[in-house]
Simulated scan of single mutants.
Amino acid sequence: MPRTVSELMTPHPTVVEVTDTLHAVAQTMATQDVGSLVVAEGGAVVGIVTDRDLVVRGLAEGIGLDAPVGQLASEELVTVGPDDDLAEVVRLMREKAVRRVPVVEGDQAVGILSLGDLAQALDPDSALADISAAAPDE
């Protein structure tokens, strides 16, 4: 059974800069078929942005496609390290009510860990594990 974040994380997450436009970020999500991206400033992780952020905090609020993603990125960022204990990370995600966390070394993103990753490893018979393991819709 996995014990540390590095055993479950998705390595090499896509990182966008705070100055990248919402349009460019949405295109990156679509091209890579991902629902979240790590946001950095000068390479240092400062936030995360999700497809839901783009819709609910961007589009629904009338923020234009040329606005910088830094305007929507999470303000209270929760990060973990690759050697962090999974049980502690689960507790932290539950306490902070987050579905995914960037994995950082220093201030650089080295991975991302999601609830789906945890479900597949720790509760493989759950509905969330099944959904997370399924091939993306085409």
Rank of each mutant, 00 (worst) to 15 (best):
E76N: 14
D84A: 11
D53W: 03
V98A: 07
L118C: 02
V104L: 12
L113P: 06
E7S: 12
R99W: 08
L54S: 09
L37T: 05
G111F: 03
A24W: 11
V39Q: 10
G62D: 05
V25M: 13
V39P: 08
A60Y: 09
G111W: 03
V56P: 04
G62S: 00
R57E: 15
L86G: 03
E41Q: 14
V98M: 08
I48V: 13
V49I: 12
P13A: 09
E61K: 15
R52V: 09
V104A: 12
E76K: 13
R100Q: 06
S74M: 02
G81C: 01
V25F: 13
Q108W: 14
A67P: 04
A73W: 08
V34D: 02
D85R: 12
L37S: 10
V101T: 05
A67D: 04
V16H: 09
D85F: 06
E76T: 15
M9A: 09
V38P: 06
V16I: 06
V89S: 00
G47F: 02
Q71K: 15
P13Q: 00
V78T: 11
D33N: 14
T31S: 10
D83L: 11
A60W: 09
K96E: 15
G116H: 02
E41H: 15
A129Q: 00
V56S: 07
P68V: 04
S126P: 04
